[in-house]
């Protein structure tokens, strides 16, 4: 475990916590006659979180972590897998089923079809994989799908005029996690013998490039001290 990998995992964890915090705030604000300003913003505007992206992530973790009960790597590894599985499914549950959280979700803006991402990724995983076995194909599928799963969220951000702070932080943390993983691969390539994983690297690189545009606007909004807004 190197510092880049640990930092990457921690930013990934933080992104999940930011989302859970957001959901918690929406839940706890509802019904108050004089909500705090954060509650007010979160309840008045749509949440800006894409359910489509969250569902894709749940699918990514479910297909990637099939080995959780068969291969033991470390306690750290198992705990993190359980956290990502548990949090992704509970976030989906909250947005779909929780009375108040569901109301803050803007279904009409979040129109991306899962199908357009899932099917090509599945086909690609069937064609390009390291070993043609059930577990390996699903694992490869999870890599391809993770690479593009952020697209519905980025499209939603572009459509939402007011991006609230937490949603902006969430996407930023996810992008930072990917960028740190690339540094981790570079580090491992030079320090570990036979560390070559083309499928992981290329899909990881594609995934990180998808954030480039967002990063540009995120940092310029920080620099100019204005609210984050993506061009239409």
């Amino acid at each position: 475990m190197n510092i880049f990998r640990l930092a990457g995992d921690m930013t990934h964890l933080m992104s999940v916590l930011v989302l859970l915090l957001k959901i918690h705030t929406i839940k706890s604000c509802a019904g108050k006659s004089y909500p705090c300003s954060l509650c007010f913003i979160l309840l008045e505007s749509s949440s800006g979180i894409s359910l489509k992206t969250q569902e894709l992530y749940a699918l990514v973790f479910a297909t990637r972590y099939l080995d959780i009960f068969t291969d033991f790597i470390s306690v750290y590894n198992t705990i993190m897998k359980l956290i990502f599985l548990g949090s992704s499914f509970s976030i989906v549950w909250y947005i779909r089923r929780h009375k108040i959280v569901r109301r803050s979700y803007d279904k009409d803006q979040d129109t991306f079809r899962h199908f357009f991402l899932v099917l090509p990724c599945l086909l690609l995983a069937l064609i390009i994989n390291e070993k043609f076995t059930f577990k390996e194909v699903l694992w490869t599928f999870s890599l391809y799908l993770e690479a593009v799963a952020i697209l519905p969220q980025l499209i939603l951000l572009q459509r939402t005029r007011n991006i609230d702070n937490l949603t902006g932080q969430y996407v930023f943390l996810l992008g930072a996690y990917r960028a740190l993983y690339i540094l981790n691969w570079i580090y491992r390539y030079f320090t570990e013998p036979h560390y070559v994983h083309w499928i992981t690297w290329i899909s990881g690189l594609v995934q990180t490039l998808l954030y480039a545009d967002f990063f540009y606007y995120y940092f310029s909004s920080l620099k100019n001290n204005v609210k984050l807004k993506l061009p239409a």
């Binding site: 995992d9 990934h12 080995d67 291969d71 790597i73 590894n77 990502f84 981790n184 570990e192 036979h194």
Partner: peptide, 10 residues
């Protein structure tokens, strides 16, 4: 042990 190296990432 190559496979294990790959799967140790999240």
């Amino acid at each position: 042990d190559e496979e294990h190296v790959m799967k140790d990432e999240l």
